[in-house]
Design a protein around this nucleic acid. Structure first.
Lengths: 222, 222
DNA sequence: CTAATAGTGTCTCTTAGACATTATCTG
DNA sequence: CAGATAATGTCTAAGAGACACTATTAG
């Protein structure tokens, strides 16, 4: 008997808040009680024939957790893994999503937002994908404007630096960071606050991802 | 009627010789006459159920063109593209292969090695994949030992610099290049030639890909 | 008045990047 | 002996990285 290879797509949806990265996970259970015990996974869907993995995935994200495209600032394909079990192949195409804060549907007990430092039990596969996503985010943070995609379109340089430090795990001297941002010419000021201890705000010059020639440096102290 | 989604894998096999990059392409035709007119493509295979894309692909490469694993220095998954035609999905998983020189089976009129500057007509899809592969190779050349994987395991610094320049399209000052290589500590000398105008040879310290903290610089002149 | 946050300038040291000549081997 | 190739050192300029204080506002 012939079985079609199975195609699955996954989303690694990351968001930033308060010096922490969060990932959105789902659980199959409906009952809240069971959910606390059961296994969480990356949001996923089977890809029906005649559909694209992305289309199918986003439909699922929309219907099961109320994701709106306005919530998503950045999307990127990560990797395709494959496994064979009982002569049956499964392909798993993973995507990274970066969002500003998302408020999921109330009452969606089967959707959870977890800090990446305190994850519930995950399958080996999901953990690998998540790790890979974070590693890629880290790498790109050093040579692109990607951290800005985890912030609202208007942000302060302090916000930007906080995201940068959270993703890379390194602290940067504030003056050097600003000097570098300025020399890269990637942001434009939106408003210079009249209040002297309230931050001026900026926005990205280019709303798409910008790559740098040289990686972003980071200092070792403070 | 249900049709299973189709899964295809492609190989972008690149090799270096004489300051040029070459890609291996195949054509379906058997007759040499027809072959010259017909369309060339990246080596590809349908992935049968119960197999992995990689296993299937390498079996095909071995049987149709005599690829031996010893010829391959480096392999990396590139990207999965998908297309939908008549409600039928096709997924295409692409891989990049880097090799030292390969001599394909004699008499394989349906296998050709083309300099990437003089490609035969290719499908839009194949051109995109090939471009992406070259772009990725270029990017990684700036911050990893990847160019060395296009050379024999033992090579001279001049060889190394030639590959580097060919991939990046930039000329580098020879002294600065050596200085940088030395500071990166990625090679060990194999033999210091006694003849004074024959190059000393080196080999990579780590036979796996090594990433640099900072990208490889390249000079503007010479 | 105290605590927290925003903003800003200079110096040093490392490294990118520019540059020319000599020695040896081959034909 | 002429032409090609390998090897090598120094100077300059740019940028990474270290470092401290003042002004304002909120409580």
């Amino acid at each position: 008997m012939y079985r079609a290879p199975e195609i699955i797509s996954n989303a690694v949806i990351l968001q930033y808040a308060d010096r922490q990265l969060f990932v959105t996970l789902v659980t199959d259970s409906n009952s809240e009680e069971v959910a606390t015990k059961s296994l969480w996974r990356l949001p996923w869907t089977r890809v029906a024939d005649g559909a694209t993995s992305l289309g199918n995935l986003e439909t699922t994200l929309r219907s099961t957790m109320g994701l709106m495209s306005a919530d998503i600032n950045y999307r990127e394909q990560l990797y395709t893994t494959e496994s064979v079990l009982n002569s049956h192949s499964t392909f798993r195409i993973s995507y990274l999503y970066l969002s500003r804060g998302i408020r999921w549907h109330k009452g969606s007990h089967h959707v959870g937002i977890f800090p990446i430092t305190k994850l519930p039990p995950l399958s080996e596969e999901d953990r690998r994908i998540l790790h890979y996503a974070i590693e890629r985010l880290h790498a790109k943070t050093l040579y692109s404007t990607i951290p800005a995609f985890m912030l609202p379109t208007v942000f302060t340089l302090n916000d930007f630096q906080d995201v940068f430090e959270t993703i890379t795990g390194h602290s940067v001297d504030r003056r050097n960071f600003r000097k570098k941002i300025e020399s890269l010419a990637i942001v434009t000021p939106v408003a210079k606050s009249s209040k002297k201890n309230v931050s001026s705000t900026y926005t990205l010059k280019d709303s798409h991802l910008t790559l740098f020639d040289k990686p972003f440096p980071y200092a070792k102290r403070s």
